[in-house]
């Protein structure tokens, strides 16, 4: 099985969580990662530069109509929903908030599930609301691989707990364990 993309949803406590996962990824890790992190509407993207310094992979904000490339980490821009098209390009919208959030994890996950079907890995990490629950369920329905952070290890347990109450994920673990698991999966496919 070749996984073609990883989508990650993270809310409060996300900065730290992303730092840990991104810095654990080796330079040859090729599966693109696409992240929705809840942030203020006027956040300026300064933090992306900071994360970039910590990662061997390129981290950038997702652009409208941009083609999704291997070995790249994409972050949803603040105040837009991020969707994935079947031709593996991004769309942005300013539709109403979903779960009080824009970008919303559910919106990314549901469109990614349709676009990648069983070639998708979905991950729900720390957070204080239940955005991502519907989306991770949809990923599972479409045959994708599901991973949820162990709520005991999460800065904010609410979001992973909500996700676990909706599905039985393929893997539960701490941030380090999730990073390790992803690296193992990526190696298997070679």
């Amino acid at each position: 099985m070749q996984y073609e993309a990883i989508v990650i949803g993270v809310s409060s406590g996300g900065m730290n969580a992303m730092k840990i996962i991104f810095s654990a990824m080796p330079a040859h890790f090729s599966i693109p990662m696409i992240i929705v992190q809840h942030l203020g509407a006027h956040s300026d993207g300064q933090w992306i530069t900071l994360l970039n310094d910590k990662s061997q992979l390129e981290i950038k904000e997702a652009d409208e109509k941009e083609k999704i490339e291997k070995g790249t980490i994409y972050i949803a821009p603040p105040n837009y929903h991020l969707l994935i098209e079947k031709d593996k390009t991004f769309s942005l919208t300013i539709d109403e908030r979903v779960n009080y959030s824009r970008p919303s994890i559910d919106v990314l996950f549901e469109s990614a599930a349709e676009a990648y079907r069983n070639k998708l890995i979905g991950i729900v990490l720390t957070g204080a609301n239940n955005d991502g629950t519907k989306g991770i369920k949809r990923i599972q329905e479409c045959g994708g691989l599901t991973i949820i952070q162990d709520p005991k290890t999460a800065e904010s347990a609410y979001m992973p707990k909500a996700a676990i109450s909706a599905i039985e994920p393929n893997f539960i673990g701490s941030l380090d364990e999730i990073a390790e698991f992803l690296i193992k999966i990526e190696q298997q496919k070679r």
Binding site: L83, I84, E85, T93, E110, S111, E114
Partner: peptide, 9 residues
């Protein structure tokens, strides 16, 4: 229109 958007709506 964007297909992913239309599908969602």
């Amino acid at each position: 229109y964007s297909q992913a958007h239309i599908r969602r709506r």
